[in-house]
Design a protein around this nucleic acid. Structure first.
Lengths: 325, 325
DNA sequence: TTTGACATGTCAAACGATTGACATATTTTT
DNA sequence: AAAAATATGTCAATCGTTTGACATGTCAAA
């Protein structure tokens, strides 16, 4: 692989000159500039970013830690994060923590060793202390872990309210809610809080079921659903905390021969693409995933440059009515 | 951020000694080793991988270029690739080419600048020449672009045959097939070839429709489906080249009030998780995505170490019968 | 007592690039 | 004709780590 020295030699100029054209500094004649560019092309020269990063103390890499890219929400998030990062000259190092604290810690260390410029955490299982000690630009998604660490989320309370209110407005009176593990201090828990509030306002006895947020344990979902319908056959409304859970609910309704939306109405959450792939297409609360990704990247860059930034970004959600309500 | 010098100074040993314990070479007493480790912990020292990579001429980073992680197939692939890579001490740099040749070229250059040890290409739009000139370990997925570049795919012909044969066996006589753009030289085209062959064997006039492989252009899919059913209302079997397309077919059947599987049977492809999320759950051809990811990573590592490796890996597919047939 | 193994240290070069200081031209402006 | 701008070069330091060569010890075995 050609180095800057090879280019210099071949173009018959000094290394400094090559560096000058590469970095656009100092005086350079058009002729020399062209000659150098020409040579770089001929040699297929690509400046070694490792060397540059070492010197500059900036790698232009952002680490992205999420539970699993195979989960549609995180897949879409990753896609947008990558896009915005790339548009701003950053690359993404992908890490799937599988919500395993050990792995997460290992990934964080790995990212530090590789001197990433910042970390976007869509997963967090460690002690707050560990994140603070990072001393590196960091931003979390949907997790408020301390005063110092900025976070991005969408308006979970409003989302929960919209979903619950919709079900009530559409006449449901026996409403269940399936949420993630409330022990984890996720902002997503506010959806449940909102659900409780709306139910209370309407004097409806809420049915609330917790699951582990593992989308790939399909058995678990199927079990929960069939138990739910067995124990509460009279349910006429369901608010699930993710579109995937909602789609399992749809499936179970088919099995139990409950008609959607006539006999039971279902609202999901996220508005992942899959929400529109399933039949009937899912009514859901739309999280602005692209925006979340954009703000996450932006917030890392702001931290790097010591530009002003908010400690909290709470983005707006939106009710998307489709065919399950 | 602490350097090896800081560790040396604080542990009152030489830099060489620290390097020795770090790299496990030469003689080191237990006492010193412990002291050094202790100090590293105290200083929260993480060796600078940029410096190491620079010297070693090995970054332990693998570039992954795919059309879009937001696509379930590539999301799952990325997830497995990342896992295997991590298990072998490699990190993944994520690139979404969006099937744009310009972007793809930019990404390849970017990866070279960052001296990745290899590239896994799940996307390819460039001239063969460009890949050959890479002189870097590379492997493609589902794309055979030259004699020199190893590729990984699953048995597309067999997959197509299984799907087509199943429909025939189940009594379908008016069978349509929706495939991607056949112009792109994808190995996936063999599914269509197999479909054609099975139809010929059974003297069925095949209906074949091409789409652009853009999962996120939902409108396109909906249009194609409604046109298909409008022009061929008598269709009783459908083989789609991806589970996502199949799920749109399911949707359209609901609209057209065609009962699945009584009036029409549908087979998808990939066996992405979503195949089991939709209702009715999708009969599909399972690609061994985890295995593809494993082999891809393995093949990059083999190339790096000049170990023997195959030029082609064709993995087995499997028919997964669920409720749409 | 000699010989090795073990333990640690010093030193310098290397990886590939950037950068500042300074030198030396040649051109262009005043 | 002097001053200023332009163009290029040389040189050395730096980023953080590894590694080989070599020196100097200590300690145990032969």
């Amino acid at each position: 692989m050609a180095t800057i020295h090879d280019v210099a030699k071949m173009a018959k100029v000094s290394v400094t000159t090559v560096s000058r054209v590469l970095n656009n500094r100092g005086y350079i004649s058009e002729t020399t500039r062209n000659k150098v560019f020409q040579t770089m092309k001929e040699l297929n020269y690509q400046p070694n970013e490792l060397a540059r990063s070492l010197l500059r103390k900036q790698s232009n890499v952002i680490g992205l830690i999420i539970p699993n890219v195979a989960h549609p929400f995180f897949a879409e998030l990753a896609s947008h994060v990558e896009r915005y990062a790339y548009e701003n000259g950053y690359k993404i190092m992908l890490c799937n923590s599988h919500l395993d604290p050990v792995k997460e810690k290992e990934y964080i260390d790995m990212l530090k060793r590789n001197r990433v410029d910042g970390i976007i955490m869509g997963s967090h299982t460690l002690e707050v202390k560990e994140y603070k000690e990072l001393h590196s630009p960091i931003v979390t998604i949907d997790r408020q872990i301390s005063e110092e660490i900025p976070f991005i989320s969408s308006d979970n309370y409003e989302g929960g309210r919209l979903a619950a209110q919709l079900l009530v407005d559409k006449g449901c009176r026996k409403i269940a809610h399936i949420c993630g593990n409330l022990e984890l201090q996720l902002l997503a828990n506010q959806r449940t809080a909102a659900f409780r509030d709306v139910m209370a306002e309407n004097e409806i006895e809420p049915i609330i079921i917790q699951t582990d947020m593992n989308v790939f344990d399909e058995q678990q979902y199927e079990q929960i659903m069939s138990r739910l319908f067995a124990e509460h056959p009279e349910i006429d409304g369901l608010f699930a905390t993710s579109d995937i859970i909602a789609s399992f609910a749809v499936k179970e309704c088919r099995k139990a021969d409950k008609h959607i939306p006539e006999q039971i109405k279902i609202v999901g959450y996220d508005d992942v693409s899959a929400a529109n792939w399933i039949t009937p297409s899912l009514t859901t609360i739309r999280q602005p995933i692209a925006e979340i990704g954009r703000v996450a990247v932006d917030s890392i860059i702001r931290q790097m440059n010591n530009e002003p930034l908010e400690h909290r970004y709470v983005l707006e959600v939106e009710l998307v009515e489709r065919l399950t309500t």
